[in-house]
Design a binder for these strands. Structure first.
Length: 856
RNA sequence: GCCGGAAUGGCGGAACUGGUAGACGCAGCGGACUCAAAAUCCGCCGCCCGCAAGGGCAUGAGAGUUCGAGUCUCUCUUCCGGCACCA
């Protein structure tokens, strides 16, 4: 063994060992239980960021742990390679997205390899390769024929200067990010996947996912958003014709309090009104300039305009005016609502603003009237009042009665409404999977037949920010109709990249399958046993994947498997501190934390921060996600080069539990490095029998402690609290260092436990020491350590002694002491005599093996 | 705005089913080694009062349940994630 811990060298050796043995390649093996461990694949943005390193380290800890437990473990890696950043880079640098993407993949792959992850690289895939995306196209044509994919119009952001569709991200304060022009909404034809056909199943199956975090299931449940209510028709006449305005409400019991109706700007009634009244046309135009994103829509000022069109209340026969409201969602329900100001907060504000009548029809906890300002009680369930024949009914009775009365008139019925909308997958972009449709004047939309798949994406184009280059390339869009053979036009939209990532997990089982999307190997590996990724994917990606798994199931590709991910771990984000100084021009100049010298007071509190180079005083910018704009990113590459992969991995695991945010700390990294160096020098002393610093503890005590720590660590491993497993490794080393000598059976056993426990977290150093100390030839082949119950036995137990709930000392008692014996010991103990001091003892609470509380 | 989380020393965090709050580490302070520095090693380290012995306070704020609450219930505050075209 070398004197010094030299991570670069031992990591290179360990990785060469694994490479030579092909240690991480797996094949189906019916003899072993399988474990499919998957981390969300990265977008090849350039280089790895700390979030990636954290994600893949967590996955690798689990992978190596399950391997040592005897499972046949698959851990693959691939690339979510289509997407917007490649087009942005192309616009900026004039390089085709394909070239940029492949360069990034090569660089990031080398980085992943340097971190020593136990990945089966034989299964690598990239979604931008035709042999992958052809199956997007194949599945799309199946869904299209089944009616699960269909065409309708959708709303997009339109930049009128660049004549291009913008992503929500590219709209900043209502303006195009490149042109600064006010963004407009535009309705264009798009393809949708009918995810709502699976809404009921996607909701119900959440209850059968015990391995998912409750919070994620709850978010999905609310997102799918099943509402039971009543669909109500308000008749009206337009151009001499009787029509019906349909609305959906969960509060049909308040129908008698409806004093107006409101429709979205996109609703047909609004269009009719606009024809007669230029002010309404102007208002609709104003709404059209408003935001597309729901988050912004929900925060704009609620505005409306009367249309002059009146509908008839289906029960009272009263005339109610229809308003156009900028707050009515065109995409939910019928795109129209009834306005009940007395019992709905938004309607209340709207009625106050425009002087509409407010009619209280529910007796709520605060009374029989609804004086301003609004109070939450007004929306509470209660008894109907001022509601004619419904007076005195409660919520359920009123809804039943009103639904029945409406049904009798043909003006309503109970109905279920979903918040979930069908998934619009058309993107007017170049760097994505072409949608396999041909538009023929005679035959309509014709799906591309299997034998003509894949529709290849030309890879040499450079977008310029003004629309989709595919739409400017006749050699791409000019084609023949597959049905009639006449000249036709190929669809130039590409698919949402979420399509690519909705089934990649299944393709990893059989990445080389040439004649099918997935083959029988998927039945061995699926479902994924453990999926790991960021909480930011809690809804969209995970819901789309659950949808696709069901679609693949129903296509007969993976029969009987409905859920793609049995267990889900949502990892927290990686944060870092930031510092800036105000420049004379009034800008903020962000200084990288590594350039900052922090001054502290005697207690270690931060007093001030200065730039190391020139001593300039800096302002603390708070802690937040690592970003270019705040200049606070930590480059994984620099970290690996300075300390090695094991230190990086150990720090990331140690600093925080996987599901919490992780705050980056350079000093913490030093601490992790220090631990590995300490382990190295202990192993060196052990192997050479060198003089050891005198320790105070007896061997039996040290052994007991090591096995107790191991028992807890194994529990923590199971519940994925890896930070305390890392702590346990430190505790074991601390215990070993207290031994009187570096050799001996306790040291030997302790080291063998420590190296196995640490090996999933810091695999290289453990690999090296396992061999160097003669424990075996490959620590990954060793069995997982279990505590020896005999080591844990104790003659006496130390009880915590409380008097009146306050800790007042402790009490040693024989392990076998029964309740009576303990009570007698307690009554005679010094703390009880002192603190109970004559007061009668009411009760003695005994928690076996832990604590005794004397109640006085 | 709506949905979902989180809050514990100077800092990251620990405390598994309610049972000694602060494990482990970082920073800080004191010391050893050194010509010196780095590295390493030893000791101290929640806050307040006290020379000490000891006592009191303390898990974002406020209430409640309990012999006992960081943990359970309610209200509030602040911060974070998502909101359908970033991935």
């Amino acid at each position: 063994m070398r004197e010094l811990y030299q991570p670069a060298e031992i990591e290179r050796e360990a990785q060469a060992f694994w490479e030579a043995r092909r240690s991480f390649r797996v094949v189906e093996d019916p003899a072993k239980p399988k474990f499919y461990c998957l981390s969300m694949f990265p977008y090849p943005s350039g280089k790895l960021h700390m979030g990636h390193v954290r994600n893949y380290t967590i996955g690798d800890v689990l992978t190596r742990y399950y391997r040592m437990r005897g499972y046949n473990v698959l851990q693959p890696m691939g690339w979510d390679a289509f997407g917007l950043p490649a087009e942005n880079a192309a616009i900026a640098n004039g390089v085709p997205p394909a070239r940029w993407t492949w360069d990034n993949i090569a660089y990031m792959k080398a980085q992943l390899k340097s971190l020593g992850f136990a990945l089966d690289w034989d299964r690598e895939l990239a979604t931008c390769r035709p042999d992958y995306y052809r199956w997007n196209q194949w599945l799309f044509t199946r869904l299209f024929r089944k009616g699960l994919a269909y065409k309708k119009t959708g709303i997009v952001n339109w930049d009128p200067v660049d004549q291009t569709v913008l992503a929500n991200e590219q709209v900043i304060d209502g303006r195009g990010w490149r042109t600064g022009a006010p963004v407009e909404k535009r309705e264009i034809p798009m393809y949708f996947l009918r995810i709502t056909a699976y809404a009921e199943e996607l909701l119900a199956a959440l209850d059968e996912l015990p391995g998912w975090p409750e919070q994620v299931k709850l978010m999905q449940k609310n997102w799918i958003g099943r509402s039971e209510g009543v669909r109500i028709g308000f008749p009206y006449e337009l151009e001499g014709e009787r029509r019906i305005l349909w609305v959906f409400t969960t509060r049909a019991d308040t129908l008698m309090g409806a004093t107006f109706c409101a429709v979205a700007a996109e609703h047909p009634i609004a269009a009719h009104a606009a024809k007669r009244d230029p002010r309404i046309a102007a208002f609709i135009e104003e709404c059209r300039r408003g935001p597309v994103a729901e988050a912004e829509l929900a925060q704009i000022e609620k505005k409306g305009m009367p249309t002059g069109i009146f509908v008839t209340h289906p029960i009272s026969g009263e005339k109610l005016e229809v308003w156009v409201g900028n707050y009515v969602l065109a995409t939910y329900g019928e795109g129209a609502v009834m306005g009940v100001p007395a019992h709905d907060e938004r309607d209340y504000a709207f009625a106050l603003k425009y002087g509409l009548p407010i009619r209280c029809v529910i007796r709520h906890p605060a009374g029989d009237s609804v004086p301003a300002p609004w109070r939450p009680e007004y929306a509470a369930y209660g008894t109907c009042i001022h509601s004619g024949r419904y007076d005195g009914m409660d919520y359920r009775q009123a809804v039943d009665a009103i639904a029945a009365d409406l049904a009798a008139k043909g003006l309503g019925e109970k109905s279920i409404q979903w918040r979930l909308r069908d998934w619009g997958i058309s993107r007017q972009r170049y760097w994505g999977c072409p949608i396999p449709i041909v538009h023929c004047e005679a035959c309509g939309d014709v799906p591309v037949p299997d034998e003509q798949l894949p529709v290849l994406l030309p890879e040499n184009l450079v977008p310029d920010g003004t629309g989709n280059p595919l739409a400017k390339l006749p050699s791409f869009y000019e084609c023949k109709c597959p049905a009639c053979g006449r000249p036709a036009r190929r669809e130039t939209d590409t698919m949402d990249t979420f399509v690519d990532s909705s089934w990649y997990f299944a393709r990893f089982a059989c990445p080389d399958a040439e004649h099918a999307m997935v083959d029988e190997r998927a039945r061995y590996w699926m479902p994924v046993d453990q999926y790991i990724g960021g909480i930011e994917h809690a809804i969209l990606h995970l819901l789309y994947s659950r949808f696709f798994q069901r679609v693949m199931r129903d296509e007969g590709l993976i029969p009987g498997i409905s859920e793609p991910f049995t267990n889900l771990l949502t990892q927290g984000m990686v944060l870092a501190e930031s510092y800036y100084l105000d420049t004379p021009e009034g800008r903020r100049e962000w200084v990288h934390p590594s350039e900052v010298e922090v001054e502290r007071d005697a207690k270690g509190r931060i007093v001030s921060a200065r730039r190391r180079s020139d001593g300039a005083a800096l302002v603390y910018g708070g802690i937040g996600t690592m970003s270019k704009s705040k200049n606070n990113g930590v480059d994984p590459q620099a970290l690996i080069e300075k300390y090695g992969a094991d230190t990086a991995r150990f720090f990331i695991i140690f600093a925080s539990p996987p599901t919490s945010t992780l705050e980056w700390s350079d000093e913490g990294v030093e601490g992790a490095y220090r631990f590995l160096k300490r382990l190295w020098s202990y192993a060196l002393r052990y192997s050479t029998g060198a003089a050891h610093k005198p320790g105070g503890a007896c061997e039996r005590e040290v052994r007991r402690e090591i096995h107790a720590v191991l028992g807890q660590a194994n529990y923590d491993m199971q519940r994925h609290q890896f930070n305390t497993v890392a702590s346990a490794c430190m505790k074991i080393l601390n215990a070993l260092e207290r031994l009187p000598a570096a050799g001996g059976p306790v040291a030997s056993e302790g080291l063998s436990i420590l190296l196995r426990l640490l090996s999933p977290i810091a695999p290289h150093i453990c690999h090296h020491l396992w061999i160097a100390l003669g424990f075996g030839e490959d620590v990954m082949q060793a069995s997982w350590p279990e505590p020896d119950p005999a080591a844990l036995e104790q003659e006496e137990i130390e009880y915590v002694l409380q008097v009146g709930g306050k800790t007042r000392g402790s009490l040693r008692a024989p392990r076998a002491a029964d309740r009576g014996a303990l009570e007698n010991l307690v009554r005679e103990s010094a703390p009880v005599k002192k603190y109970a001091s004559g007061r009668p003892i009411k009760r003695i609470v005994i928690v076996p093996g832990r604590l005794i509380n004397v109640v006085v």
